[in-house]
Design a protein around this nucleic acid. Structure first.
Lengths: 357, 357
DNA sequence: GGCATAGGTCAAAGGTCACTGGA
DNA sequence: TCCAGTGACCTTTGACCTATGCC
């Protein structure tokens, strides 16, 4: 029974945006003075920039800065937050989000043997263009920060389950189950719940991620389906410990190698666990993991209504991700492994869909 | 002797406003928290909205609500009336009255054959934009209510004359007069009185109608002159019964077909009576009739100092009128007839001015 | 020439304070 | 006499508009 993942993707009516305003956390309008923010904060920054800001005083010892309730009430802290987020009126006209410099269409690992990254043209050389433009760095940094925040926000609830997973992993007690019809039914239902939860998380993340505004609902569904397992792996990676999986369906049932095989089959399980093992071995930071979500999602899916648009978004998040790789001094070996899992992700996804019981 | 209608328009010094405050009936200042109201009521509502209102108590069993004398004395009822009129502090920033969505200049039936309504772009489709914005609906409903109240107020005095008119109409006694020089003089003087009365009514209505604040006095005079007969027809429409006119100059003299012809000429009379007949046959509600007053007045006149402003006001009242048409499920046949009289109104006005004796 | 961002405009939101009227 | 409440006046806000300049 191949899984139809679309069933798990909520038909959410609220449309996707430029994300939250970096200043006041309301809906962002576009990039203004180099920062994702709303019209109101843009207007405030413009008004203030003509020396007006010099008169601003905070009555609360600059405590409003981190209080979303107060940030718009206190001009001093609002101005301060604008500056801290990198807003600047003296810059040249800043980067736009559309139209990456070279016509770019993302490689399609389902249809060709093309590598996701080609070291000469893409990976570290991505930086050649990033470096040339200071304002683009600013944008990339924002993409990174926003994405990381969202990743943390949406995996926060795992912090205590992960602790338990670690505890079980260290106790070295292997759990063996009796695969009765009833048990199989139970683990399938639990899997269903996880899928629902994950698709909800992805939609929630996309709602606040910049650049996804203009991608049609249908394309988003396709993208989420095509890269469902890879993104799920990223979100749940911390449960993969010592070459086994310690996600608990409930207090007793652990989604370990055997249970996974029962849900799919042995061969698919092995591929999936290899995939997880490789991803885990890359030892990525939370920033890198967060960026993997939009990166994976924008890897071409077949049958997109507007593939070029998705390709552009892919370009931006790829730049952000590779910029981060560069900062973290990732080696060629790392990049090769990364290339493997990026290429294999959609294939694995298809395999798991087809073999799911 | 062509009539110079401007002579009948009083040179009233009091300027035109946003109308009456919906709460205390004093002069409204602007739209505040979604409602046409005065500064005082705006300030009261703002002060109260921070939980203060919870302490308000009415000593008179909430009887102050409908008493303009008491409404400002009783905080409970004042707050209550604010809420009942739709004031809200939690709304998004509400609709402004200026700047209709599409650059809009009203058609000029005097200078072109352009239709007042074009079914595709204007009429019912006007609703497409109204529908999209909840706060605009609120404003439109207020425009409708205010206009209807003013229409009723200013035609109230006709209630007993209309009863008499109906009585005469049903008695089927045709009145024939002897057109002596003395009689002709009499009916002209009576007409003069009616014109004065009507121009007074129009000025009184405009004083309380929202949106007419910024239109210059000269433009208002031009607008009133250009659409004097059409607006007069709307105000006196109830005297048109069974294809004749039953307005009584005094107890004896009825402004019937013959008298009308004596005041102008037979051809002009026929056009005027056709116009009245068509208008009557539309069987419009008082709300629709009331909205016709500002709608007609804002149809372009020539030589306006600020035609664009008048165009914007026209846009708002057109939206209100057509929203009402939509609610009343008006047919295409209705709209075609309506289009006829709207287009013909200014021409008829000119004809009657020129042929008046 | 299409389109995203910069910058201008102004009606409405919200703050301030001398005054007022009831306790 | 006092003080919460009032409303005239003022500043700030932000929605909408046009202009600009990069692809």
């Amino acid at each position: 029974m191949p899984l139809i993942l679309e069933n798990y993707i909520p038909d959410d009516n609220s449309y996707l945006t430029h994300g939250k305003c970096r200043i006041c956390l309301e809906r962002a309008n576009s990039i203004n003075f180099g920062v994702f923010c709303c019209k109101a904060c843009k207007a405030f920054f413009m008004r203030s920039s003509t020396n007006k800001y010099k008169k601003y005083v905070c009555k609360f010892n600059q405590a409003c800065l981190n209080d979303p309730e107060k940030i718009k009430k206190c001009k001093f802290c609002r101005w301060d937050k604008c500056l801290k987020n990198g807003m600047s009126i003296n810059e040249e006209r800043v980067a736009k989000l559309k139209n990456p410099p070279n016509k770019f269409t993302q490689p399609n690992p389902l249809e060709s043997n093309q590598s996701i990254i080609s070291k000469q043209t893409d990976s570290f050389n991505c930086e050649h263009y990033v470096k040339s433009d200071h304002t683009r760095i600013l944008i990339l940094n924002q993409l990174k920060e926003i994405t990381c925040e969202l990743y943390k926000e949406n995996t926060m609830e795992f912090s205590s389950p992960v602790l338990i997973a670690n505890y079980i992993a260290n106790s070295c007690q292997k759990r063996v189950y009796n695969y009765t019809e009833e048990f199989n039914q139970f683990i399938r239902e639990e899997r269903f719940k996880v899928f629902q939860k994950h698709s909800n998380s992805i939609v929630k993340i996309l709602k606040d991620l910049p650049c996804f505004l203009n991608i049609s609902k249908n394309d988003l569904k396709t993208m989420i389906s095509t890269h469902f397992f890879p993104t799920l792996s990223v979100m749940y990676l911390k449960f993969f410990i010592n070459d086994d999986y310690y996600f608990m369906f409930d207090n007793d049932v652990q989604l370990n190698r055997d249970v996974f095989a029962a849900l799919y089959n042995v061969k698919a399980r092995d591929y999936a666990f290899d995939y997880l093992f490789t991803m885990k071995s890359l030892n990525m930071s939370e920033k890198e993991l967060g960026l993997l979500i939009p990166f994976f999602l924008c890897l071409t899916s077949s049958n997109l209504e507007n593939g070029e648009l998705v390709g552009q978004v892919f370009h931006y998040y790829k730049c952000a991700l590779f910029h981060e790789f560069k900062l973290n001094k990732r080696t060629n070996e790392f990049l090769n492994k990364f290339n493997q899992i990026a290429s294999f992700g959609p294939l694995l996804n298809k395999m798991l869909m087809d073999t799911a019981k």
